[in-house]
Structures are given as C-alpha cells and as structure tokens.
Amino acid sequence: MKTPGARSQWTDFNWQLVHPQPLQPLQHMALDQVLLDEVAAGRRPPTLRIWEWAAPAVVIGIFQSLKNEVDAHAAEAHGIQVVRRISGGGAMFVEPGNTITYSIYAPLSLVEGMSFKDAYAYMDDFVLQALDDAGIKAWYQPLNDITSEAGKIGGAAQARRGGAVLHHVTMAYDIDAVKMLQVLRIGREKLSDKGTTSAAKRVDPLRSQTGLSRESLIQKMIDVFRQRNGLQESTLTPTELATANRLIEEKFGTFSWISKVP
C-alpha cells in the first residue's frame, strides 16, 4: 500500500499504449487535454501515446506569443497549420515522417515532490536508454531539452491539472532546416546567426546519428518502456475521440485560442 503523499513508481500502474493512425494537428492538441483529463478522473489507466502526423504543423506553447514565434505568411505559403497546445515550452516544427512525438499521461503522484527540472529528466529516462541502445549518446539539458554531441535532438513540455501530469516530447528524426527557419521567427534568432548550416547543426536529426528508420527508433522506445514498466496495447475510445472533436470546435480550432497570446 502506497503511503498517502508518497511518490508512485512506474510499475504501480497498468500502462496502456495508444498508437493510432495519423491524426490532424488539431486532433493531437485536443487529445492531449482529453487523455490528461481521463487519466486524472480515473477513467483511463496511465497511458503512453505515440503521435503520427497527418499534416505539417507549427505547435506553440500555451504561453507563447503567436506573432513573435511564427511567420504567418511563410506558414501559409508552405501549407503549415499553426496550433496551440495546453502545455508550456517552445515552438515545435513538425512534418509527417520527420519527427518522433509522444505523450505520457500519468497520476501526479509519479513526480510527487520533484522539481520541474528533475521531473522532466525522470519522465524521459526511458528514451535516453532507447537512444543509447540505438548508438546515440544523449542526455538531458535542463530544463527540457534532449541533446547529444551533434546537437539538440528534441524538447519536452508539461502540463499538470486535476491530479495528473501530461509530459510530451518532440524529437527531430529528420528536419527541413530551411523551411523551419522561414516559419519560426524564434528559430531565426537562435539558429541563423551563421546561416542555415548552423541551424542544421544545432537541431541535429536522429536520422544523421543512426542508421535506424524512424519506425525502428519508435519501436525501441516502446520496447524499453515495456521492459521497465509493463505496457498493454490500447486504443482511443469513441467517447475520447468525440470529446476531442468537440474541443476542436469549442476551443482548439478557434482563433481566440490560437491567438490566446497575440
């Protein structure tokens, strides 16, 4: 019996894996809220969700300024949708097949008493092992970056509500650095002081560091998670999908949400 207020262990839970077909960016945003709320309410066991993207997107954090982060004209020209998520962190540039994105939805007791710095690293430790198994020496760069000697691999974000924690990560498997710098304003400031070459080096895709396919890397991540914590196949329920669609109409697809911070 876990002592009230004590930290839970990964193996205290019956973890579920959700890895559906490619979804639209707005569906991903809404599902993060839905599944976080479902775990918080005890209607869904703690869950690992692997994202597949049906379309390119720029995903900005809940506190980020739309105009400061995104060149709207460039995004429109490239057919890239801009969406806003419920967690903090920085902007993500994603294209189908070029990123590895996942979310973990867990009771808050899993990170009870941890600092945000420690909680981020703790939630992603299984990924560092999977990358190591793939021959990539990666580590956590506080607060929320996964990096290697070749450069940044990905970034994490979290949201906590209703007694549950959402932790998600996007890692660059491959990247179109030119397009990214055209669409992300912050990318220009951080990366383009020496042109596109330095941008590509700073955000270094996993593809350049391993001979493994994207699918093989994802499978390694799943395998490590399952070996450590147990993991059962699951699916999104009709109710979860219907709730996500409603939230797209009422919240995530609205201009007021996307421009929440102008």
Rank of each mutant, 00 (worst) to 15 (best):
A6V: 03
W10D: 12
W10G: 01
D12L: 07
D12Q: 14
F13S: 03
N14P: 11
W15R: 00
W15D: 09
H19K: 13
Q21C: 08
Q24M: 11
Q24E: 09
L26E: 13
Q27I: 07
H28K: 04
H28T: 02
G42Q: 05
L48G: 05
W53F: 10
P56W: 08
I62P: 00
I62T: 05
K67V: 11
K67Y: 14
N68V: 01
E69K: 08
A74S: 05
E76F: 04
Q81D: 01
G89E: 05
A91W: 02
V94A: 02
G97H: 06
I104C: 12
I104K: 01
Y105V: 02
L108G: 02
L110R: 04
G113K: 09
G113F: 13
K117S: 13
A119T: 10
D124L: 03
D125N: 08
L131V: 07
D132W: 09
I136Q: 07
A138W: 00
W139L: 13
Y140C: 03
Q141N: 15
D145F: 00
I146A: 05
A150N: 06
A157Y: 08
Q158Y: 03
A159R: 10
R160W: 07
R161T: 13
R161Q: 12
G163F: 06
H167W: 06
A172P: 02
A172T: 03
Y173L: 15
M180N: 03
V183C: 10
R188W: 13
R188T: 05
D193V: 12
T196G: 12
S198Y: 12
K201L: 10
R202H: 12
I218L: 12
Q219M: 05
K220M: 09
R226T: 02
P238S: 12
T239G: 06
L241S: 14
L241G: 01
T243V: 04
F255T: 12
S256K: 14
P262Q: 07
P262A: 02
